[in-house]
């Protein structure tokens, strides 16, 4: 019995290799098609990954990545001991957590409210308008913020002055940095980030609502028992993804908002890597800082995914 089935298995395998070979021969042009894409990933993604080893070396330009001498954890130790370390962690995590605490629930609430609107025209107009800021560039956004928040002639401070209060130097005060950063992001992205929840809401079976109405469920009961469970998987997936990016405060916006006066709360890991690495040319040291950052992110992602899989049965993998 066992021998027969083994025999069959081998036959099957032979057959499947034949089919496989035929398919590969027939689809040779698909392999040609995908080759440039593979080459792109090798050069621009995998080669830099190979280059990460300079974090454990002293990079010397004319010796190249491979030829530079190994230095173990020297650069990591230097980073952990430097007086920049804790402020950088505090700023990076602080901005991210603030961002997550505000930026995660608001698009959900917005989508839930929009979903209650029955007038299609009104709904469409609100959507078109609230998506618009997403398309502004970071440079334009920060430029608008600087102009509108200026203590001298900015429109926001004009209103504050109108109320008889002292103008606030929003962009220059370290204490205001996080708030300005996070809420300008809310202004720019709430509409856009709500799209995915609108899609999830549209996917809920309307029969569930009809049945609930027949059973006499109130609006709140329907929301709590049908709508919220309906978008929960989407929300959790996004929460996991966002948590995995906690240490990734976007360079672009922070860098543009940064100035000498708010540096104590605006210096984050990505801007520090840029300054130490590209301005200061300390390639190995800042590669080490960058690697440390990626590792923390990855650990966070795995941890949150695990917790989520255990508690809610939703996970990325």
């Amino acid at each position: 019995m066992a021998e027969v089935s083994l025999d069959n298995k081998i036959k099957k395998q032979k057959k499947s290799t034949k089919v496989k070979k035929a398919a590969i021969r027939r689809n040779w042009d698909l392999y040609v098609l995908i080759t440039p894409v593979v080459i792109y990933f090798l050069i621009f993604k995998y080669w830099p990954m190979y280059g990460v080893q300079i974090a454990f070396k002293d990079f010397i330009a004319n010796k190249g990545i491979w030829g530079s001498p190994w230095r173990g954890f020297k650069h990591f130790r230097r980073f952990f001991r430097s007086y920049h370390f804790w402020p950088l962690i505090r700023n990076t995590v602080g901005i991210s957590v603030y961002q997550l605490a505000v930026g995660f629930p608001i698009p959900i609430i917005f989508a839930l409210m929009l979903n209650e609107v029955k007038n299609e025209k009104f709904k469409k107009s609100v959507q078109t308008i609230t998506y618009a800021p997403h398309f502004l560039s970071t440079v334009v956004l920060v430029g608008m913020m600087t102009a509108m928040l200026s203590p001298k002639n900015g429109i926001v401070n004009e209103f504050i002055k109108l109320l008889g209060k002292e103008p606030i130097y929003f962009m220059a005060e370290a204490n205001w940095f996080k708030t300005v950063y996070v809420w300008s992001g809310i202004w720019q992205n709430t509409g856009w980030n709500s799209i995915i929840y609108m899609a999830a809401l549209a996917g809920i079976d309307p029969q569930l609502y009809e049945a609930a109405i027949v059973d006499g469920a109130s609006k709140w009961q329907r929301m709590w028992n049908i709508t919220i469970p309906g978008i929960l998987p989407t929300a959790i997936t996004l929460l996991i993804l966002n948590t995995g990016r906690i240490m990734n405060v976007g360079f672009e916006k922070v860098f543009l908002m940064q100035n000498g006066l708010n540096l104590t709360s605006s210096e984050v890991i990505s801007t520090y890597v840029y300054k130490a690495g590209l301005i200061g040319a300390e390639y190995s040291f800042s590669a080490a800082v960058g690697l440390f950052n990626s590792i923390i992110n990855f650990i966070l992602l795995i941890t949150v995914n695990k917790i989520s899989r255990k508690t809610t049965e939703t996970s990325l993998w």
Binding site: I34, W47, V52
Partner: peptide
């Protein structure tokens, strides 16, 4: 295999400095 090859780059990257050197 190729999907895995592409997906890996979504979670791992060389980072700013190694990319710059390349």
């Amino acid at each position: 295999v190729l999907t895995l090859f592409f997906t890996i780059t979504m979670f791992f990257s060389g980072g700013l400095i190694p990319t710059y050197l390349v």
